Lab assay of single mutants.
Amino acid sequence: TQVHVDGVTYTFSNPEEAKKFADEMAKRKGGTWEIKDGHIHVE
Protein backbone atom coordinates (compact mmCIF):
# COMPACT_ATOMS: atom_id res chain seq x y z
CA THR A 1 0.00 0.00 0.00
CA GLN A 2 1.44 3.36 -0.99
CA VAL A 3 1.04 6.52 1.05
CA HIS A 4 1.71 9.83 -0.69
CA VAL A 5 2.68 12.80 1.50
CA ASP A 6 3.95 16.09 0.03
CA GLY A 7 5.29 14.39 -3.09
CA VAL A 8 7.03 11.61 -1.15
CA THR A 9 5.85 8.01 -1.49
CA TYR A 10 6.04 5.60 1.44
CA THR A 11 5.31 1.92 0.78
CA PHE A 12 3.84 -0.46 3.36
CA SER A 13 3.24 -4.18 2.95
CA ASN A 14 0.49 -4.02 5.58
CA PRO A 15 -2.52 -1.81 4.70
CA GLU A 16 -3.37 -1.31 8.39
CA GLU A 17 0.12 0.08 9.05
CA ALA A 18 -0.27 2.36 6.04
CA LYS A 19 -3.54 3.73 7.41
CA LYS A 20 -2.02 4.32 10.86
CA PHE A 21 0.90 6.15 9.27
CA ALA A 22 -1.42 8.26 7.09
CA ASP A 23 -3.49 9.14 10.14
CA GLU A 24 -0.40 10.28 12.07
CA MET A 25 0.91 12.35 9.14
CA ALA A 26 -2.49 13.97 8.58
CA LYS A 27 -2.70 14.91 12.27
CA ARG A 28 0.77 16.50 12.13
CA LYS A 29 -0.16 18.50 9.05
CA GLY A 30 -3.60 19.36 10.40
CA GLY A 31 -5.06 17.78 7.30
CA THR A 32 -6.86 14.64 6.21
CA TRP A 33 -6.16 11.48 4.26
CA GLU A 34 -8.16 9.60 1.68
CA ILE A 35 -7.85 6.54 -0.49
CA LYS A 36 -7.61 7.30 -4.23
CA ASP A 37 -6.93 4.63 -6.86
CA GLY A 38 -5.91 2.18 -4.15
CA HIS A 39 -3.29 4.56 -2.78
CA ILE A 40 -3.54 6.71 0.34
CA HIS A 41 -3.10 10.44 -0.12
CA VAL A 42 -2.43 12.76 2.82
CA GLU A 43 -3.62 16.31 2.15
Rank of each mutant, 00 (worst) to 15 (best):
T1W: 13
T1C: 14
T1Y: 11
Q2G: 04
Q2E: 10
Q2Y: 13
Q2C: 13
Q2R: 10
V3H: 00
V3R: 00
H4Y: 13
H4S: 05
H4K: 04
H4N: 05
V5F: 09
V5P: 00
V5W: 04
V5Y: 09
V5K: 01
V5C: 14
V5I: 09
V5Q: 01
V5H: 06
D6S: 07
D6R: 04
D6E: 08
D6F: 06
D6Y: 05
G7W: 05
G7Q: 05
G7E: 07
V8R: 13
V8C: 15
T9E: 08
T9F: 13
T9W: 13
Y10K: 05
Y10L: 06
Y10F: 10
Y10C: 14
Y10P: 02
T11Y: 14
T11Q: 10
F12C: 12
S13H: 10
S13K: 09
S13P: 11
S13F: 11
S13A: 12
S13T: 11
S13D: 13
S13N: 11
S13C: 15
N14G: 07
P15F: 15
P15S: 11
E16N: 09
E16F: 08
E16T: 09
E16P: 03
A18Q: 00
A18K: 00
A18S: 02
A18P: 00
A18T: 01
K19R: 12
K19D: 03
K20Y: 08
K20N: 11
K20H: 10
K20T: 10
K20I: 12
K20G: 08
K20P: 00
F21S: 00
F21K: 00
F21A: 03
F21E: 00
F21M: 02
A22T: 01
A22S: 03
A22Y: 03
A22N: 01
A22M: 03
A22R: 01
A22I: 02
D23S: 11
D23Q: 12
D23K: 09
D23E: 13
D23M: 12
E24A: 10
M25A: 08
M25R: 04
M25S: 05
M25H: 06
A26H: 03
A26Q: 03
K27T: 09
R28V: 13
R28M: 13
R28E: 13
R28I: 13
K29E: 08
K29H: 15
K29N: 14
G30M: 03
G30F: 02
G30Y: 02
G30V: 01
G30N: 11
G30Q: 05
G31T: 07
G31R: 02
G31L: 07
G31I: 04
T32L: 07
T32Y: 15
W33N: 05
W33T: 10
W33E: 05
W33A: 10
W33M: 10
W33R: 05
E34C: 14
E34T: 08
I35V: 12
I35S: 07
I35T: 09
I35L: 10
K36S: 09
K36F: 13
K36N: 08
K36M: 13
D37Q: 04
D37N: 07
D37Y: 05
D37S: 04
D37T: 02
D37M: 04
G38S: 04
G38C: 08
G38H: 03
H39A: 13
H39S: 09
H39E: 12
I40H: 01
I40C: 05
I40K: 01
H41F: 15
H41M: 11
H41E: 08
H41S: 08
V42N: 02
V42E: 02
V42R: 01
V42K: 02
E43Y: 15
E43W: 14
E43N: 14
E43R: 14
E43M: 15
